[in-house]
Design a binder for these strands. Structure first.
Lengths: 195, 195
DNA sequence: CGTCTATTTGAATGTACTCAAAAGCGGTGG
DNA sequence: CCACCGCTTTTGAGTACATTCAAATAGACG
């Protein structure tokens, strides 16, 4: 039966090759963590002590405007992806984002000292995290181009094409927040398409 | 008298420490390149063969919609920053962006094999490029939050606050393209502020 | 001075939002 | 089993934000 660590290990070894001693060391650094739906993984203002890998479940990374109480979702973290305020984690500074579980979640966590030790002991991870950071960056560049070149309706259509499973899995008001549109307007877009 | 390579070296050594042999090796990998205003550094469809450091001048990285001919500026590259289609460079695939000089430019370039050799010979650079990639990523995250949470007028105000020098240096229609607004509307925003 | 390009201005239009009310939907307890 | 509660989605009217298009003005450069 598959252990939680296996999905993390598989994600890693699809990009870099490790020997058994490295695998054992790597696996020893991660601790399981469970979150109930609604629980916070990180709260803005705190230092993000852990980088978390999502084994099962789904979270939102968002910013809250304290003037209006309005939430803006920066991204969702689903299975086989990461959930952290990366800037807070790598600089060990106060987080600017909140991270909250949208479903019951199973995570694997590494703390900052262990993360530094990992990079030191197995320098390949320096490369690994450079590459996944780059790939995330490329997706953000595409998203920015979308926001400056498309109408909100076009952005929604592109979203359901790229992430059909997220669109089905999450309520409309969260999708709307991610896209930067009102739930009412998203409702109108959706009803338009079916006619 | 300062050589072009000095500004690159200073940027690098502000984050990592190199010995003299490493400095010499590093400097040997970069070749100067000059561009006249209007010249292309990269054209969409080509493979981005070089990573370029901007010693002097200014370029735009943009995407062209072939249906409409409309250009959308992803970012500007000014002194002490980089100009490349990073995804094209690191994966040696066809570029999706064009890069064009907005002024006469002085660059330093490294080709892909030399870049790989640099990472291999001096693994510290693996770390260095991970860190600057992360920092660029954080700025993109903030930009995305801006696009989903602010009106276009608010985005312009945030832009001039963050990049007053770019706002003065470049014509309005380029700023408008970067912000994803029309030049006419930007004109109206600007005239409003002065009243 | 003339030409080319960039900016400004205004009217008409389109896109998306606000606000309010109604309808849908899932869970819980009587 | 149904009634009620809380939360999400839908719908519509009115409004605000931003665009399009066209024409006038301003600036840069030879």
């Amino acid at each position: 039966m598959a252990k939680p660590i296996d999905s993390l290990l598989q994600t890693i070894t699809s990009k870099i090759t490790l020997n058994q001693a490295e695998i054992d060391f790597f696996c020893s650094l991660w601790k399981p963590r469970f979150l109930k739906k609604g629980q916070y993984l990180v709260q803005a203002g705190d230092v993000c002590k852990y980088d978390s890998f999502v084994v099962k479940g789904c979270l939102k990374i968002f910013h809250t405007n304290w003037q209006t109480g309005q939430e803006y979702i920066l991204s969702f973290s689903l299975e086989d992806w990461w959930a952290s305020d990366l800037e807070s984690f790598v600089k060990q500074r106060a987080a600017t984002y909140d991270i909250q579980a949208l479903e019951d979640c199973q995570l694997l966590q590494i703390d900052y000292p262990s993360f530094q030790e990992l990079l030191k002991q197995i320098p390949q991870f320096e490369r690994y995290f450079r590459i996944i950071t780059e790939n995330y960056l490329f997706s953000l560049q595409k998203r920015i181009l979308g926001t400056i070149s498309q109408t909100k309706e076009e952005r929604y259509k592109a979203f359901i094409k790229q992430y059909p499973q997220i669109n089905k899995r999450l309520p409309q008001y969260l999708i709307a927040s991610y896209l930067g549109i009102t739930p009412e307007f998203l409702s109108k877009i959706r009803s338009k398409k079916e006619s």
